[in-house]
Each structure stands twice: as C-alpha cells, then as structure tokens.
C-alpha cells in the first residue's frame, strides 16, 4: 500500500523555490531516510506531508487524503522536530500523561522506560532542558506514539553520540516490534544507513534519487591509482567524481556497471574502494565549483 504520494509537488516561499515538481511515493512500513544538503527542501517536504503547509502547485496525498487541515491524517501522524512546543506550565511528567490521550497506539511502558533510561527528572520543564535533552525527550514521544506515519526531522540535533546510538537502536527495535511507516531526515547518513531501507535524496528541491540502501551501496565504485592507469580505466564509464590526492595519483568514483572487482584488481597498481553512502550523496548533490580546495587555490 502507498502511504504517501506526491505528484508534481511544488512549494515556493515568495520567489524562493523550495520544492520543484517533486513526484514520489512511499510504501507502507518502510523506514526511509530523507537526505539532502542544507536548503535542499527536506523540512518543506516533511511539513507538506504532515499537512503543516499547503503546496503551491501539485498534489500530496497521505493515506489517500489531502493532509492539509485533515483530522483523519493528523490522527495518524506524528511530526518530531526541534521546534516542538509544549505548554510551559506542564512538567515533563504532565506532558507524557497528556500526550497519551492524543495517540491511539500510545505505549506508556515504552515512554516511561525510555524516560527513566535517559534519567529525566519528571518535575522538570521542557523549556529548561538542554538542546540535546529536548531532542531526546521529543524522540521518546515520537517513538511511544507509534503512529502509522512517524516523521523525524533531524531528530538527533544536539544529542551526544552515545544518545544518538541509543536512539537509532531504540528506533530499529520498536520498528521491528511494531512496523510502521517512518521517515527520518538526517545529515548523519553514515550513522543511520544500516537501519534504513530506502533513501530519498533531494537536490535543490528535486528528487535526485529514491532507491533502496542495498542498491545504493553498489551504485558506485572508487578507483585509486596512478593517474594514467586510472584515466585509461575511466573510458566509457560514468564518472561521478575525480580527485587528485597526491602527485600523479588519481581517485575516481564511477557508476558501478556490474564490473567485478577481480576485473579491476588484476592490475597491480589499481586499488578498488567502496564508496560510502555519505560520500556518494555528496558527489551526487555536489556543486560544480570544484570542491572546497578550489576556493583556496584562487
């Protein structure tokens, strides 16, 4: 079943085009990573899905409804980001008690288990928490709500690396126990790639690619060696990135067209390297200005 369907989705803020003719769909119970550079349109897309914003053009359907002003959709969605506002008179304990009434699948046991594990003080106010602890608290609500569509927009901002690891594991475990559609936007792709099934990569408000992590891991190959030898091998290949890293040496990233590593490795001077998803996404969404080194050469 398709949970989210976007057709020619466009959103502009005045003259700024945040999303440009985006068509995509997300299937039920997939754990999808929404990836893109700063300003690529990730948050705008998530807010359109959640019904917080109206598209300028095009159509968005969530559970076959237009999410804007839809009770049906909002009852089935939770949107977690670091701008969540709670009543200032409420203690953390009050928030956990009250929020339970809004979500049909609320798992109080999980909420309190995580609350104790992360050593929150029940009497504290949300506003007085540190940035990282606010994110952690919001994450607890996002997981415990067990909404059929759960959206996390940069959920780990401010969290230290130990908490981030715990969060990813908690997310995966609860997803395995209670499968649901989850979208996670993140800048830390290397940390989340193993738990994701699909990646939707945005570039300048358009879809750069939408594929399974398993496919993307084999999307590209890195080739390292003496410049001439590498250049010979690049003929007929789709080149995604090249970089001279030492005198006469070249590192090139090419699209993997089913060549086996043995075919390449037969040549003694060549080294074949895996291309991390994080690097691949940088190469695919990179600007044409020759990289940061170029700035320093001028």
């Amino acid at each position: 079943m398709t949970v989210i369907q976007g057709e020619n989705l466009t959103k502009s803020y005045g003259k700024t085009l945040a999303l440009d003719n985006l068509t995509f769909q997300i299937e039920e119970n997939k754990l999808t990573g929404l990836i893109g550079r700063n300003g690529a349109g990730k948050t705008t897309l998530l807010k359109l899905i959640a019904g917080y914003l109206k598209p300028s053009r095009g159509e968005i359907n969530v559970f076959s409804h237009n999410p804007f002003d839809s009770l049906q959709v909002s009852a089935n969605i939770i949107f977690i980001d670091n701008h969540m506002a709670f009543p200032t008179a409420f203690s953390l304990d009050d928030i956990l008690t009250e929020v339970a009434h809004y979500y049909q699948n609320w798992n109080a046991k999980l909420a309190h288990g995580l609350f104790d594990y992360f050593s929150f003080n029940p009497k504290q106010r949300h506003g007085s928490l540190s940035k990282g602890n606010q994110s952690t608290f919001n994450m607890i609500i996002g997981l415990a709500a067990r909404c059929p569509l759960t959206i996390f927009d940069e959920p780990t901002s401010g969290m230290d690396s130990a908490v981030r690891k715990d969060f990813y594991r908690a997310l995966l475990k609860d997803y395995l126990e209670y499968p649901r559609t989850i979208i996670l936007s993140s800048h830390l792709l290397s940390e989340v790639e193993d738990i994701l099934e699909d990646i939707l990569l945005l570039r300048d408000g358009t879809k750069c690619l939408h594929q399974s992590v398993l496919e993307l891991k084999e999307y590209a190959l890195g080739l390292k060696g003496p410049k001439q030898t590498v250049l010979e091998r690049l003929k007929g290949q789709e080149i995604l990135h090249t970089e001279e890293f030492a005198q006469g040496s070249l590192y090139a990233v090419i699209k993997n067209q089913g060549l086996t590593s043995q075919q390449f490795l037969k040549h003694e001077d060549l080294e074949l390297l895996p291309v991390s998803l994080e690097d691949l996404c940088i190469y695919l969404t990179g600007n044409a200005k020759g990289g940061i080194d170029h700035v320093f050469k001028q």
Binding site: D194, V213, L214
Partner: peptide, 17 residues
C-alpha cells in the same frame, strides 16, 4: 530476518538479502 536485524542493528531487508 527480524532476529538478525535486531542482533546486528540493521534493516530487516538487509538481513533478508
């Protein structure tokens, strides 16, 4: 695939493969 996903902290689709 679900047990493996839990053990290795990976998506169940990866474990299934």
């Amino acid at each position: 695939q679900y047990q493996l996903a839990e053990m290795f902290n990976i998506n169940p689709a990866t474990a299934a493969k």
